[in-house]
């Protein structure tokens, strides 16, 4: 039986990845709102996912406000698909 990817098998990181798998890109505020997390925690988890190469994080400006845009990478997409496949195996789906 395949082991569940420990990087994805945590509540907030999995929530972030699930959202990003469903949209092309999302900004920090959107992710914070949808995951109902704190800015600090979200920031830490985004860094972890980014370091693993699962998401890309682009910091820019929108008018006068800073805007951080996140998108899932090819490696992230593959890791997520593998994770879901492993989940199905565990649950006999």
């Amino acid at each position: 039986m395949k082991e569940l990817n420990p990087l994805l098998h945590s509540q907030l990181r999995l929530a972030i990845m699930s959202i990003l798998m469903n949209v092309e890109e999302a900004d920090f505020v959107y992710l914070k709102e949808k995951t109902e997390s704190t800015a600090g925690n979200l920031s830490v988890q985004l860094d972890k996912l980014s370091s693993a190469g699962y998401i890309s994080v682009e910091k820019g400006m929108s008018g006068k406000r800073p805007r951080t845009i996140c998108a899932v990478t090819k490696a992230g997409r593959e890791a997520f698909e593998e994770y879901v496949e492993a989940l199905r195996t565990y649950l006999n789906l």
Binding site: S10, Q11, L14, A15, S18, I19, N22, V23, K34, N41
Partner: peptide
């Protein structure tokens, strides 16, 4: 949302719930 470990069933429910939120 806290940073915590999940059961397999909880994981699947979380994925479904996040997808629904982006609908």
């Amino acid at each position: 949302m806290e940073e915590k470990q999940l059961t397999e069933k909880e994981s699947l429910e979380l994925i479904a719930s996040m997808i629904a939120r982006t609908k």
